[in-house]
Amino acid sequence: MTALLEVKNLTRAFVGLVAVNDVSFSLQAGRITALIGPNGAGKTTCFNLVAGALRPTAGQVLFEGRSLEREPPEAVCRMGIARTFQIVRPMKDMSVLENAMVGAFSWTTNVKEARDKAYESLDNVGLAGKANARTDQLTLPDRKMLEMAKALSTRPKLLLLDEVMAGLRPTEAAGVVGVLHRLAEGGLTILLVEHVMRIVMEVASTVVVLHHGAKIAEGKPSEVVADPAVLESYLGAGFHA
């Protein structure tokens, strides 16, 4: 099995703290991997490093064997990596449909093609009925889904999802889990940051756990939740299963 993405000894220091510290992992094509860890663990920073929004202090990111650390975000996207933002960022003066069209212009200049792709992406996340709405008329869960539709329009090989299910009701989250499974069956590789362990258990085939910027565990979901180091990081020192 070949790795689509390889992260090697990735490190990013900010003034006063190392947000990502010597982290290595790899993603298998067509699989869903979850990146978990307490708040401030460095998950979003990790996404930013892979997506080209931040430069690593040290380490490497290889996508299909090509080195990414020096590439700007637009180039990373054009190579096939799309990301959502944890804090949603809709283009506020564009309609939902127009938002979903933008990503398609990374591979076509044809407006009709972009519109067809946008409808398809919106349909994928259950937003097709709100295509003509303004983004400020959407509920938070819908805005999260719009982030996903925008990313899907770029036709990614790898999708980075930063807490897309946060704030969703269980039934809504179940719907998204279904969407993720369908996308993965279609060959898409997904790396997602998610807090609800039940959802992680349900979608991910592999889990990577970060704590204070360092990787403390990696493995199948069932293994990871039984790992004392993981329990300790989530529940505090002194806890033993």
């Binding site: 975000p73 960022r89 283009m91 933008v102 990313a151």
Partner: peptide, 13 residues
């Protein structure tokens, strides 16, 4: 115009 960083993340040069 609406969001430079988000546009770049969607491949806009």
């Amino acid at each position: 115009r609406d969001d430079d960083e988000a546009a770049r993340a969607l491949g806009v040069r």
